[in-house]
Design a protein around this nucleic acid. Structure first.
Length: 564
RNA sequence: CGGAACGUAGCGCAGCCUGGUAGCGCACCACGCUUGGGACGUGGGGGUCGCGGGUUCAAAUCCCGCCGUUCCGACCA
């Protein structure tokens, strides 16, 4: 492509709305342009990258036996009502105003409706169906450029199996394919155990890229490789103590003590003998949650114990129900509340918590003797430095970008849409499903987050929109321009994709800076001082290493680079 | 949805407080000059100052409402 004729609008200045490097560079390098909040146009250069990513995905999906579909983004509302997901998605689901249609945020429903009509027997299974298509989600707050948009390209696939073992196999095939895809894209990634969230199902893993700009938080063990989304991560923290004798309950006066830290200071005790009470409403019913010391409640974990709506109780309602302020709430003698406790408090005694009387706390609480706990569960959020659940080495907590998510769905969707098949014995059973997603834009943005410098992007060969950026430096010299033209033609003939900066009016500095910004892996620089001796210059964008090569030999050198 | 900021030429911004001619840099067009790290000179084109209402002789500027965008938080498959 000749740059003089190409539409590659580069910007010298950083657009004010872009706060993170990938977003800034994608706009500056002319890959994308914003249209409205969370919606971007791919410009030609950006779409070349997107196509490379999609082709890698396609090859690896085909390699595990995937069959490519192209499903409609417009779905009948009725189909989504059947699975209850109109309500589950709520405002995230775009609904068409003048027809009972929705814009699909994912395609389990459509897949099931096809399977229901055409998969009749266990002999038709297993299947892996996939597509690469635009998804629509009405995100309340789009941000970080293409990392969280309202419209984005997603590879989504669905496995259909007869049995749970079959699902395990399909799931593992996907996990392996995903690793190959990210590796080929040049991403440094890791896999974490994840929450299935609103998707439901029996297990899920996320593929993550460590990045300060990521919206997910992950606990990592550098020693043994344990990695889990903070939504489900656990650690080996000790339980609350249990002393020999449970002392008698005793009310203590604690004027103006509200927080756990205040209380520990006031009583000169460690926070590990204190039980914190949090009050929520689950489907409108009051629930008291007990946490040890300053442990932070993990709402994702709580939601898996308390499905349904969940909201913190307002202080006014709390005061009205208990007659005490939030800092003095406790589990003993509390009526009308379900009581849940974090696992860490199981069996503890001689603990201190609120007395349900403002300015008073209750000491010597025995969890077994004094508290009617409905259930114990892991409800706490892991903190950095805590011992790893597997090897007890300290955990790290990092931010990460989710670039893929795989789910074992089970029979949830097949059941609600009656997607059944007949097994070997002629018994009708629901299809066992898995669902798997990769965000195409997130791969691109994550790649840029990991591979840029002050000057711009540093593409690898796999994702680069062009392999070579050919720069004609002194365009006023006839012989120099014709030498560049010649090289451009030769590179085209041997199939090396080349962006050729043949602009007559741009100064050398302008061209060099554009080349660094656009970030093709190799820059081929044709300038007067080298050409005089029959040489040209090759610059490696990533290392900035320059080599002087004979003009006749440079195409071979580039071919060698491409094959290496 | 809560908190905050912003909206003036394609981009980055000033002007607003203290009302009276819409400005700067980059980009763009023409000509000249220049060619190894975002040149230079001369001339030029381009703006309903987000939208609507109000105050005023007069509004980019003051007041009210709306819309949009971004950031922090909540939320998040």
């Amino acid at each position: 492509m000749r740059l003089s004729k190409a539409f590659i609008p580069t910007l010298k200045e950083t657009p004010s709305e872009a706060a993170i490097p990938s977003h800034q560079l994608m706009i500056r390098a002319g890959l994308i342009r914003p249209l409205t909040a969370g919606v971007y146009s791919f410009l030609p250069l950006g779409y070349r990258v997107a196509r490379k990513v999609m082709e890698i995905i396609r090859e690896e999906m085909d390699a595990i036996g995937g069959q490519e579909f192209h499903l409609p983004a417009l779905n009948p509302l009725e189909l989504w009502e059947a699975t209850g997901r109109v309500e589950a998605f709520g405002d995230i689901l775009f609904q068409v105003k003048n027809r009972p249609l929705v814009l699909a945020p994912t395609h389990e429903e459509v897949i099931c409706s096809i399977a229901k009509n055409h998969v009749r027997s266990y002999r038709d299974l297993p299947q892996i169906w996939y597509q690469i298509q635009t998804k629509f989600r009405n995100e309340p707050r789009p941000r970080s450029g293409v990392l969280r948009g309202r419209q984005f390209i997603m590879k989504d696939s669905y496995s259909l199996d007869a049995t749970a073992e079959g699902l395990d196999h399909s799931y593992n095939l996907h996990a392996e394919a995903y690793k190959k895809i990210y590796t080929r894209c040049g991403l440094k990634f890791f896999v974490v155990g994840a929450s299935s969230g609103a998707m439901g199902g029996t297990g899920s893993q996320e593929f993550m890229v460590e990045s300060a700009t990521g919206e997910d938080t992950v606990a990592l063990c550098d020693n043994c490789g344990y990695a889990a989304n903070l939504e489900i991560a656990t650690s080996k923290v000790p339980r609350a103590r249990r002393n020999g004798i449970s002392l008698e309950l005793k009310e203590i006066h604690t004027p103006n003590v509200r927080t756990i830290d205040d209380l520990a200071r006031f009583l000169s005790v460690g926070t590990e003998v204190l039980a914190k009470s949090l009050v929520y409403k689950s489907d409108g019913q009051p629930v008291l949650i007990l946490m040890l010391g300053n442990d932070q409640l993990n709402e994702s974990k709580l939601k898996s114990v308390l499905p349904g709506t969940l909201e913190p109780m307002e202080p006014e309602e709390l005061a009205a129900r208990i007659g005490a302020e939030a800092g003095s709430i406790g589990p003993v003698g509390l009526r009308g509340f379900r009581i849940l406790s974090d696992e860490r408090l199981r069996g503890g005694n001689n603990l201190i918590s609120g007395a349900n009387r403002t300015h008073y706390h209750l000491a010597n609480i025995d969890m077994e003797r004094d508290v009617q706990v409905e259930c114990f569960a892991d409800l706490r959020t892991v903190q950095a430095g805590e011992p790893c659940i597997q090897c007890e080495k300290p955990l790290r907590i990092v931010n990460a970008i989710e670039i893929g998510h795989i789910f074992k769905l089970g029979t949830k969707y097949a059941e609600s849409l009656s997607a059944n098949f007949l097994d070997e014995r002629g018994v009708e059973r629901p299809i066992v499903m898995g669902s798997y997603g990769i965000g195409v834009e997130r791969i691109i943005a994550s790649y840029i987050e990991q591979n840029h410098d002050a000057a711009g992007i540093m593409w690898n060969k796999a994702l680069a929109p062009f392999i070579v950026h050919l720069i004609a430096v002194n365009t006023d010299k006839e012989e120099l321009l014709s030498a560049s033209d010649e090289l451009y033609k030769e590179l085209q003939q041997v199939g090396i994709s080349t962006l050729y900066d043949d602009r007559l009016d741009a100064t050398p500095g302008f061209k060099f800076n554009d080349a660094d910004l656009l970030g093709m892996p190799l820059q081929l620089i044709v300038g007067e001082k080298n050409l005089r001796y029959g040489n040209v210059e090759l610059k490696d964008r990533r290392t900035s290493k320059r080599t002087i090569v004979k003009k006749q030999e440079v195409v071979d050198a580039i071919l060698h680079f491409v094959k290496s």
